[in-house]
């Protein structure tokens, strides 16, 4: 957590500098440089999250891109998850479906997905549930007659078993019956005598 805070602090610091530059460029109301991002659950029934970012009226109408910080593959980089247009009050919201749980850092920046690569504001949120299952491609693969596999295997094994029973049965019958038949023949002959 301590390390997370450090990251947060660093991120906000850089965000502030960005905002200062933008303020100069637009020469807009300087008081409103407290850009924020907030995260909330969409509703009681939905595990999706509403990401909303305020950049003030200066950002009205422009694209706002939302980010999430990944925890995989060494980079811990910012992944753009989508973008939305800011309202006249400079607020943009985006409905995000979380794909993992745990404390997650979200961010937003003014600009389209191709023009910005990292957020100007960040905030952390503890995601408790992620509604995503595995992607469709993981679940689904079809082979023709795939479902028949079990039945096929069983019937094939049964066929093999029948063949073995027939073969060994024939052998066993000969082994058991043959000496008896010989015995009968001997008895017959002795009677004849």
């Amino acid at each position: 957590m301590k390390s997370l805070l450090k990251v947060l602090v660093a991120a906000t610091a850089s965000a502030a500098s960005v905002l200062v530059i933008s303020a100069v460029a637009f020469a807009a109301t300087p008081a409103q440089n407290a850009a924020t991002i907030s995260v909330s659950q969409v509703s009681q029934s939905s595990d999706n999250l509403t990401l909303s970012a305020r950049f003030g009226a200066s950002a009205a109408g422009s694209k706002v891109t939302f980010f999430v910080q990944t925890q995989e593959f060494a980079g811990h980089g910012w992944m753009a998850v989508g973008s939305a247009s800011a309202s006249s009050s400079g607020e943009a919201t985006y409905t995000y479906t979380p794909t993992w749980t745990g404390s997650t850092v979200f961010g937003a920046a003014v600009g389209s997905e191709t023009s910005v690569t990292s957020p100007s504001v960040t905030g952390s949120f503890n995601v408790l549930k992620d509604p995503t299952g595995l992607p469709q491609s993981v679940i689904e693969y079809a082979r023709p007659l795939g479902g028949a596999g079990g039945v096929l295997v069983k019937s094939l094994l049964a066929t093999v078993a029948i063949i073995w029973v027939l073969l060994l049965g024939a052998l066993l019958l000969v082994i058991v019956r043959m000496p008896r038949l010989a015995g009968e023949a001997v008895i017959d002959e002795s009677r004849r005598d």
């Binding site: 990944t70 980089g77 992944m79 993992w100 595995l134």
Partner: peptide
């Protein structure tokens, strides 16, 4: 595929 993230060696996520 689960977290829907991909990263390369240049750090682009």
């Amino acid at each position: 595929l689960k977290t829907d993230v991909a990263v390369n060696s240049l750090g682009s996520t």
